[in-house]
Nucleic acid binder design. Structure first.
Lengths: 359, 359
DNA sequence: CAAATCTGATTAAGCGCTTAATCAGACTAT
DNA sequence: ATAGTCTGATTAAGCGCTTAATCAGATTTG
């Protein structure tokens, strides 16, 4: 296979200098319109493809962005990656991935690695506890507005408000929020938002899966049916995953969603629309977040770039989330357990623990 | 911030030539042990990091692999990405991602892009219909053994056999397989495997979600309860996603999994263990597949590399899948509808269509 | 002891591109 | 007519690294 043509091949074929070819192709120096056209033609004819390595060496810019995620295993990662890849490609950048395998130390290592590989900047979706300041390179952080150093992210709090208000508007008064663990800014924001949106009248409590599992083992029952008996008509999970688990558990308890109980999620994961009942949830505008993050990075990398389109100019830190009402939420009518503390339910309707999962 | 030191900085500091430094650091030329040590020390002291761009330009190898997926949005992508990233990192390579957004044309474009970016090779998880031959670069294809040109992949057929045999062993005799669409090699293999594993005695039929949705709209009911009435006791989905949907629909119909019906999935997605009932499924050995794919690629890129570890030497095309039995599968005892064609069920136990999803 | 060999280092060229500096010629302006 | 401007191109250096070729000196060899 023939080695790929380079600048001088074109130059030689046209009897000009390679600098002229470079100028013509990049539109930088002074080249007559006609020569410029000829060069462009010849380049296409020869199938010229600029060597990024050569360019990188010469300019000091690789046109590659590093994407580091706290945990590649996170179900939201695909959406992130896709959106970032798209935004980067549009800006003429490639995306190099790094994985921190959930570990903060590995994360730093991953970032260093990407920088060594020549990444011009890093997009970081951090694990809680990262010291962003230590990074010696342009960085855009996607976390949550309340985190210091956050560059751009979904407005998790506002998303929570959307959910809270939705539930209140449906007429729910007792709400249980399902969270994973306490030390996550994102979750804290979401929960804060839910509480705010739900309003001060209703009564709200929060369940921490972490704590429950620490006691009863991973995958254990969350005891939601019990809460329903105590008058809780709505469960707002801090992630679709937990919502799914909740729906699942409730249905196994003989409760129907949303006829008996309402369940909502967060993030609109891939399958949220295809389970039944389809999940009411809240979605981030990944596209927008990705575009903003990349735009911010480019601004750091090449400050004198062509001004970004107006719509980006605003560059809000917090991108609004969107409520997606599907069929897992409804008014709390026809509740199976209208009176509180009704413990004498038909055991057939509320089978206890049958089929708990222990692989 | 001080510009990063380069080879000649080290050379100057030690009063030697930069070639010597290069040789010492790469262990290639002839350098005395002592000088070599000094150089290594000085390098560390100055915080020297080799410029990949320089090296790439000089050697023609970027030490970057391109990862192209049919659809980054696919829920399995994280696992892929993570495994590949790991395998690549171990071999000293970075991973550049490309997304074909499900489109074959975009896919070709994505590959070209990565090559232009200097990727030394491509790992491709293709969309059905890709012309692999057209790729002008080392490629490793991860698809399914029955696809010509496949480099390495999970043994989907064998995985299917695992599922089929598991269901037969449990005592099921009527099985419905749930697939998405017909023109997928992977699905075809999985289904073929399931049928084979289930054996010729049982009766098996296949449901295509695609077809059903074309008729009744996306997210529609699959009519599984109806099948249960006709004596089907097991549903083997070709993906955890569809299994989830099946479980969900069955539970809403008042059927208990696995007490009444068995459901199995495929792929062991992230949440498969945390729904209830936890999903019986089959998992690919991503780690292994990724290692083999990367190893194969490296063999094409640098044929005279150090021989790979023995365990890789075998380099099977098809990596066995592993059956993961959880709680969604059980013997078909206590079926709610033991007799076939029992249509007179309590409507309360089988609510029809309430809460179908239309956002 | 001269010739051959080895060792440990240096020189120099080149990878493909960018870009500042330069230059020749043509065109204004005085 | 002569100095000053513009235009359209060229020259040349350099980005950081690798590597073949070279070389000086020390060590072996017949």
């Amino acid at each position: 296979m023939a080695p790929r043509p380079n600048l001088s091949d074109i130059a030689r074929a046209l009897g000009v200098s390679s600098a002229t070819v470079s100028n013509a192709l990049s539109g930088k120096g002074r080249v007559s319109a006609q020569l410029s056209r000829q060069i462009a033609e010849k380049a296409k004819e020869l199938g010229y493809v600029p060597s990024l390595a050569g360019r990188a060496l010469s300019t000091g810019r690789s046109h590659v962005l590093g994407l580091v995620l706290a945990d590649i295993g996170h179900p939201l990662f695909p959406q992130f990656a896709q959106a970032i890849e798209q935004a980067a490609t549009r800006a003429g950048y490639g995306v190099l991935i790094g994985d921190s395998r959930g570990d903060v130390k590995t994360q730093t290592a991953a970032i260093d690695q990407l920088i060594e590989r020549g990444a011009d900047g890093i997009i970081l979706v951090p694990r809680h506890g990262t010291r962003i300041a230590e990074i010696n390179s342009p960085v855009a952080v996607i976390d949550t507005p309340s985190t210091p150093g956050n560059t751009v992210s979904a407005d998790h709090w506002q998303g929570g408000r959307l959910i809270g208000a939705h539930l209140r508007d449906l007429g729910h008064t007792r709400l249980a929020i399902i969270g994973l663990h306490q030390d996550s800014n994102v979750q804290a924001d979401r929960i804060g938002g839910i509480r705010t949106g739900f309003g001060p009248e209703g009564s709200v409590r929060t369940l921490w899966i972490d704590a429950l599992e620490a006691a009863a083992g991973p995958g254990c029952e969350l005891g939601l049916a019990e809460l329903v008996r105590h008058g809780y008509t709505a469960f707002a999970a801090v992630s679709d995953i937990h919502a799914l688990r909740a729906v699942s558990e409730l249905q196994r308890s003989g409760l129907s969603v949303p006829a008996h109980v309402t369940v909502t999620g967060f993030d609109d994961l891939h399958w949220a629309r295809s389970i039944s009942p389809a999940l009411t949830t809240v979605r981030m505008d990944m596209e927008r977040i990705a575009r903003l993050a990349v735009a911010d990075l480019l601004l750091q990398i090449e400050p004198d770039r062509i001004a970004p389109p107006v719509d980006e100019a605003a560059r809000p830190q917090a991108v609004p989330m969107e409520l997606i009402v599907r069929s897992s939420s409804a008014s709390p009518h026809g509740n199976l357990f209208p009176s509180q503390d009704n413990n004498n339910t038909d055991p057939d309707t509320l089978p206890s623990r049958e089929g708990t999962n222990n692989a």
